[in-house]
Amino acid sequence: MSASATLYYIYDPMCSWCWGFRPVWSQVKAALKDKVDVVYVAGGLAPDSDEPMEPEVCDYLQKTWRRISEQCGVEFNFEFWTQNTPVRSTWPSCRATLVAREYGREVALYERIQRFYYQEAGNPSDYASLYDLGEELGIPRETFIERIHSEDIERQLQEEMALAESLGVRGYPSVVLKIGDQIHFIRHSYTDVDANLQQIEALLAA
């Protein structure tokens, strides 16, 4: 095993496939905690927008949710589509997790946003909701508001997206193992923990 091995998990809080992968990823991460450094990267799926989603986009995403639920065994709260005005904008939630990173709460907020969106039918495209979630996790509200709209966090988001691109990421979630200068894209299974671990451990042992 190389001491310089880093396992990158490239995510977006509002990526439905990330929600589908979450049960398996949690087990993979736990199994590798003493073998590799795990680094989360906010990929930035959809840029800022105030425009409501077109009906055909809403229909497509609801079909995707159903497919993920059947394939991965996770549940979605479809009341989201009737209780909110859906907007295709995920950068606000990515900025939120970057603020939380400064408090050691990135993963906690990422997972909280997922539950808020997929289980509680909340809307993470709405900044006010993100303020509430940050405060819920102990981040001072006024500081959170100031940081999430800061030029510094915007720069960090752009750097995160550039890192994802440099790792060859084209979709979310993605798992990439870097050993020294070598980059290995893990063709992750959404349902088989061992299949993921076998790929990664074989590379670590090479």
Score class of each variant (00 low, 15 high):
90 T>N: 11
161 M>S: 09
163 L>F: 06
73 G>P: 08
172 Y>E: 05
165 E>S: 14
104 G>Y: 08
101 R>L: 12
112 R>P: 00
57 V>Y: 09
189 S>H: 05
90 T>K: 03
151 E>M: 07
127 Y>V: 09
114 Q>C: 04
25 W>D: 03
152 D>Y: 06
184 H>D: 07
63 K>M: 12
187 R>N: 15
40 Y>H: 13
99 V>L: 03
60 Y>F: 15
97 T>W: 11
164 A>N: 11
78 F>H: 14
166 S>G: 00
201 E>Y: 09
109 L>Q: 00
172 Y>C: 06
116 F>L: 02
79 E>C: 06
91 W>M: 04
77 N>F: 14
27 Q>I: 02
175 V>T: 12
188 H>K: 08
59 D>Y: 05
82 T>P: 03
9 Y>N: 04
86 P>E: 15
191 T>A: 11
36 V>Q: 02
186 I>E: 13
161 M>Y: 03
5 A>W: 08
188 H>I: 10
181 D>I: 02
40 Y>I: 09
19 W>K: 01
69 S>M: 14
41 V>S: 04
149 H>T: 13
149 H>L: 13
82 T>S: 15
123 N>G: 02
73 G>M: 10
19 W>G: 00
203 L>S: 03
108 A>W: 03
206 A>V: 07
102 E>K: 12
174 S>K: 08
29 K>Y: 02
175 V>E: 01
107 V>S: 05
149 H>R: 13
134 G>H: 02
137 L>N: 08
85 T>R: 14
138 G>H: 04
39 V>T: 15
173 P>S: 07
76 F>Y: 10
109 L>H: 02
90 T>E: 12
183 I>A: 11
33 K>I: 08
118 Y>W: 03
143 T>R: 12
201 E>C: 06
37 D>K: 15
118 Y>C: 01
85 T>G: 06
193 V>D: 11
192 D>E: 14
74 V>K: 00
2 S>Q: 10
131 Y>I: 04
30 A>E: 15
130 L>I: 01
195 A>C: 08
162 A>Y: 03
58 C>V: 15
172 Y>D: 04
100 A>D: 08
86 P>Q: 13
148 I>E: 03
53 M>Q: 13
158 Q>C: 07
114 Q>L: 05
107 V>G: 00
117 Y>L: 06
55 P>Y: 14
78 F>E: 14
184 H>T: 04
177 L>N: 01
146 E>P: 00
118 Y>F: 13
197 L>W: 09
48 D>E: 14
129 S>G: 07
113 I>C: 02
142 E>L: 07
171 G>W: 09
137 L>S: 07
120 E>L: 05
127 Y>M: 10
138 G>T: 05
47 P>F: 05
2 S>A: 13
79 E>W: 03
100 A>H: 10
35 K>H: 11
121 A>F: 04
88 R>N: 14
180 G>C: 09
43 G>C: 12
144 F>P: 02
204 L>D: 13
